[in-house]
């Protein structure tokens, strides 16, 4: 006699275990997003710097991030740093380093794009009205920059949430790993794997979708 595989998710604390696994990557994502916003501001100011060296430095950084699969970057930090620098980082620390390295560059480039997208005559006409520099920033530039930036930043955040799933590959016990453990326990239930992975798929969707909708809504309203 067998029930549907989905029932195993409601046996004992299995569902809580899955959510716990999801929280591992979600927490990584949240830390990454926070740090990326912070460092992204710095990164953008370097990208817009008048001096050449910081600009070139950032460009190269950006290109590395664009060309290297995040998984390769994870391997470099997780396995490579131990070899080269003797730094034996655990998976989660490596993940935060890598994803922040990536997020900073992407966020910085978005901030740069948003700042430079504001036509110069906006500043000029504000100045012509006799506004002070700080007033121009506060009332003219920052609101317009935020409108452009926010939808894109939210989209980047959902990308970060999705990408943190990769920590599975450097032995962090996250939702997929927990799923495998549950499936292992219930190996006599043939369709357990189907339901477990299906639910994980849905969980990710439930987390990311509202952000996507929000980004699209903001984009539409502020277009």
């Amino acid at each position: 006699m067998q029930d549907l595989g989905i029932s195993i998710l409601f046996k004992g604390i299995n569902f809580q275990r899955l959510l716990g696994g999801l929280w591992v990557t979600l927490r990584l994502a949240l830390i990454t997003i926070g740090l990326s916003c912070l460092f992204g501001l710095l990164f953008a100011s370097l990208l817009l710097s008048r001096r050449k060296l910081p600009r070139i430095f950032c460009r190269i950084w950006l290109e590395i991030v664009r060309f290297m699969p995040q998984l390769v970057l994870l391997y470099i930090v997780y396995f490579g740093f131990a070899r080269v620098f003797g730094l034996d980082l655990d998976g989660e620390t490596s993940a935060v380093i890598v994803f922040t390295f990536w997020g900073t560059a992407e966020m910085g480039d978005l901030i740069r794009g948003a700042l430079t997208s504001i036509p110069r005559h906006q500043t000029e006409s504000a100045a012509a009205l006799g506004l002070k520099k700080s007033q121009i920033f506060l009332h003219v530039l920052i609101p317009q920059t935020l409108r452009r930036l926010l939808p894109q930043a939210i989209n980047l955040s959902t990308r970060i949430i999705k990408t943190t799933a990769l920590v599975k590959m450097i032995n962090v016990t996250e939702v997929l790993k927990v799923g495998q453990q549950i499936i292992g326990q219930f190996y006599r239930q043939p369709d357990a794997a189907f339901w477990v992975y299906f639910v994980i798929f849905l969980l990710y969707f439930i987390i990311c979708w509202p952000f996507s909708l929000l980004a699209r809504q903001l984009e539409k309203r502020w277009a």
């Binding site: 369709d191 189907f194 994980i200």
Partner: peptide, 19 residues
């Protein structure tokens, strides 16, 4: 667009065969 490829692959490769 709102799910990771890794999860999609697990579902395809390890989940679907079970049904």
């Amino acid at each position: 667009r709102n799910t990771p490829l890794l999860v999609q692959l697990f579902f395809l490769y390890a989940g679907l065969p079970r049904v």
